Computed example of a mutant assay.
Amino acid sequence: MTKRALITGITGQDGSYLAELLLKKGYDVYGLVRRTSNINTSRIENILDKINLIQGDMADQSSLISAVKQSQPDEVYNLAAQSFVGSSWSQPIFTGDVTGLGVARLLEAIRVNELNAKFYQASSSEMFGKAVETPQNEKTPFHPRSPYGVAKVYGHWIAVNYRESYGMFVCSGILFNHESPRRGMEFVTRKISNGVARIYHGLDSELRLGNLDAKRDWGYAGDYVEAMWLMLQQKTPDDYVIATGETHTVREFCEIAFEAAGLDWKKYVKIDPRFLRPAEVELLMGDSSKARKALKWKPRVSFKELVRMMVQSDIDLLARESRQKAVAQDYSPVKSGRLKVN
């Protein structure tokens, strides 16, 4: 019998990679999308004809109940969130409502529909924040340093609560930073790779960043969604840290990114105080030994490969956009002679 999966946040980086993975495994894939006039489906354009999109909102209980009832999923992957840490400072209430309470709404939608669906919650390394130990594992206490981190802690513990209170199959993946060419432009990694590409093509002359000393455990999103799936294939539900176990600074990311384009980062990177946060998380590094043993999971793409992949993708993307603009100009009514201008 074909399995059904419901993915919230399917139009995001992780959602798109997970949808592709599940399709390869023969799933019927349903994706929750917000009721907006312009749904950004750019990341799932190549699979739009293979998936089923359902309108709903993590802030609207009735729409989640309806989406679960309509999709009748065997597995639910909750990847929806206001996921940019920086924006959570200016939108703390919205972040708490969607990223935190949204988890409770979705779990409740499964419960009231009386479905025996397995549930994956996208927890975050930002929950550790001002970590009391390095590396961080499943037993490390949480000390979030942003409204986003606080909201994720609520989402994590409400997931645990539903598992313990109702016997639901609920897993949380405490994922450390994971990037790809599909990362949003608001994230520092994509800001760097896109900035390098723009400088490479002569569109910009500098790249402004905040704290270059912040250290993160960066992995490849395509590797990490496989861990999500593996969690829901186990006999018993549990929580797992997913990380590479390596830490790198934003400065190192810059060095490799500019080097990939044949450029010297020191000539182009400028520190801008506007991009410094009220409370900074200086160091995050995960211990994924539990997942490696229990799930037989391990990252495949190295840090350097990831950075180079992102830079090359953005260089190619800007080149394609440039060619498309050139073609559009060549075929414009004025230039082609179809429209005469006095």
Rank of each mutant, 00 (worst) to 15 (best):
M1G: 11
T2R: 12
K3P: 01
I7R: 03
I7G: 02
T8L: 15
T11A: 08
T11Y: 10
G12W: 12
Q13D: 13
Y17L: 07
A19F: 09
K24M: 05
K25Y: 12
G26E: 08
L32F: 11
V33R: 10
R34C: 03
R34D: 01
N38K: 14
N40L: 15
T41F: 15
N46T: 14
N46V: 10
I47Y: 04
L48W: 01
D49R: 07
Q61D: 03
S62V: 14
S63D: 05
S63T: 12
S66Q: 08
A67E: 04
V68H: 03
K69C: 07
N78P: 02
N78C: 05
S83E: 06
F84W: 06
V85C: 04
S87I: 03
W89G: 00
Q91N: 15
T95S: 11
D97R: 13
V98S: 06
V103D: 02
I110H: 02
I110V: 12
I110W: 00
A117R: 04
K118P: 00
A122T: 13
S125Q: 07
S125C: 06
K130D: 15
E133D: 07
Q136E: 08
N137Q: 07
T140D: 03
T140F: 06
F142I: 13
F142S: 01
R145G: 09
S146A: 08
Y148P: 01
V153G: 00
I158E: 00
A159E: 06
A159S: 12
V160E: 10
S165L: 11
F169N: 01
F169H: 04
V170E: 02
C171K: 01
L175S: 06
S180R: 04
S180C: 07
R182T: 09
R190T: 12
I192L: 03
N194M: 15
G195R: 05
A197Y: 03
I199E: 00
L203A: 06
S205V: 14
R208M: 07
R216V: 14
W229R: 04
W229M: 05
Q233F: 07
I242R: 00
I242H: 00
E246T: 08
T247R: 04
H248C: 05
T249Y: 01
R251L: 10
F253Q: 09
C254G: 01
C254W: 04
E255P: 03
I256S: 02
F258N: 06
A261F: 02
K270P: 04
D272T: 09
P273M: 10
F275E: 05
F275I: 10
R277F: 03
R277M: 08
E280H: 00
V281K: 06
L284I: 14
G286P: 03
D287W: 03
S288H: 10
S289A: 14
S289V: 08
R292P: 07
A294P: 01
A294Q: 14
L295I: 12
V301I: 14
S302I: 13
E305V: 14
M310G: 05
V311Q: 01
D314E: 11
I315N: 00
A319G: 00
E321D: 07
S322A: 13
S322T: 12
D330S: 11
P333L: 13
S336F: 06
R338P: 01
